[in-house]
Simulated assay, not measured.
Amino acid sequence: MTKIRLLWPRKTQVLIFGELGVSFLRKAVPKQYTTEVLPLRDGLPVAVRGSFLIRYLINCVRQKLSFRQAYFSALIDEFKPRAIVTFVDNNSILGVYGELHSDVLVISIQNALRGAASIKNQVGRAPLYFSFGDITKELFYETKSSYQRIESVGSLLLGLYLAENDFGQDAYDLVFISGYRESSLNDKSGGHSYEYCKALMDANGSIFTHLLRYAKDHCRKVAVLAKGKVANEGEHYAEEREFYQELALGSEFTLVSTVKDTFKSYRTTLNANLVITINSTLAYEVLSVGRKTLFGWVSNTDLESHKEAVRYTKYPPESLVLNNDSYEEFQEKVTALIDLRPEDYESVIEEYKSKCVNQDINNPPHMVIEREIRRHIEQDH
C-alpha cells in the first residue's frame, strides 16, 4: 500500500524538486530568495487543498498529460514558484512542466554519468539542463531527446568543494573507488542487467586484487572508498566490507566511509596520489581538475560487449585506460602514472579532461545557477 505524505505548500520564489542533494542545491540559490522543497521520498506527496485536485483534473483533461505528469505538475503549481531546481535529472516531469510554463525557470542538474538508455528512457524531455560535459550533450543528440537548452558546466558538488578547500596534499597513496553492488550479486534473474552487473563485479574484483599485489610489491598503501553511503564516519555496509576482506586474503587496506551529504568522497580522491576506478562518476570529476586517474572499464572482456560500459573510455589517452585484465599492464600503467610529473600529466589529459566533466574552477556550477536564477526572477520586477 502506498504511503501518503500530506503537504501544505507555501508560495515560494525557488522550489527544490526532491530531497536529493538539497543541502548542496540551497548553496546555489541566492540567499535573498525564499526556498521550499517538494519531497519525493517516504511516501506520495499530497497537497491538502481543493485547488490541487482541480489543477490535476485540468491537466488530465485539457492538457492531456499522463496521470503522473498531471499529478506532479499540479503539485508544483501549488507552490507558485518562479524557478525550480533539481538534482533528480533522470526524469521527464520537469521537462514537460517547463514546456507548459515558459514563465518559470526550470533547471535540471546532472548528478551522475548517464548512458544513452537513461537519457532516452528516463530523461526523455529536459528543461534547462546543466550537464557535466559535452559527452552528455552528444547523448541527447544521438537519442533525439528534447530539451530547452543544455549547458556543459561541470559538477555542482565538485565546484562547491573546491570553492572552500585546497587539494593535492597526497594524504592517500592509492585510492580505489569501489564499484561494489550487493543487488547485482544477489540478482539471479539471468537477464541482461544481471550479466552486465556480474561482469562489472568481476572487473571490480580483478582490479582490487591487482592493486593489493602492486601495493605489496612497491610498498604502497591502499585505500578503498566505499560505494555504500552511510550516515556517520567509520560506518560501512557489512556486505561490502566482507567482500573486500575476502578478496584481500589478509593483505592490508583501509576502507574509507562515504558519508551521506558530505564532501568526504571528494576529499579522499582529490588528495590521493592515484585514483583507480571501474566506472565511477567521481573519477571523471577529479580527472577534470587534473588528478591522476586510471580507468578499468575494459579490464574484463565481458564488459566490451556493453557499449555503455566503454563509451566514456573512448576519449582519454591509452595511458589512462586498462585494455585487458593482466597484472603486467596494470603494473606498467600504475607505475607510469605515479612517476609522471604533474606538468607532463596535465599535457596528457588537456584535450580530454573537460570532455566528460567541463569543470571551470573560476566559474563553478553553483555560481552559474545562482546567476541564472537571479536573472530570471529580477527580470520580472
Rank of each mutant, 00 (worst) to 15 (best):
I4D: 12
L6A: 14
P9M: 11
I16S: 02
V22D: 10
L25P: 02
R26S: 01
L38V: 11
L38K: 10
G43W: 06
S51P: 02
I58L: 14
C60L: 15
R62M: 07
L65P: 02
R68W: 06
I84L: 07
F87A: 14
N90H: 10
G98P: 12
L100D: 15
I107V: 11
R114H: 04
K120F: 10
K120N: 11
Y141E: 11
K144Y: 09
E151M: 07
G159C: 08
Y161F: 12
A163F: 00
D166H: 15
D173N: 14
G179P: 01
D187I: 03
G190K: 11
C197N: 15
F208C: 11
T209P: 02
L211D: 04
L212V: 13
R213H: 10
D217Y: 03
V222W: 00
A223W: 08
L225F: 04
A238T: 14
Y244I: 00
K264S: 04
V275L: 12
L287V: 07
L303W: 01
E308C: 09
Y327D: 14
D339I: 11
D344H: 09
D344T: 13
Y345D: 03
K355E: 10
C356H: 06
C356M: 09
N358T: 01
R375Q: 08
I377C: 01
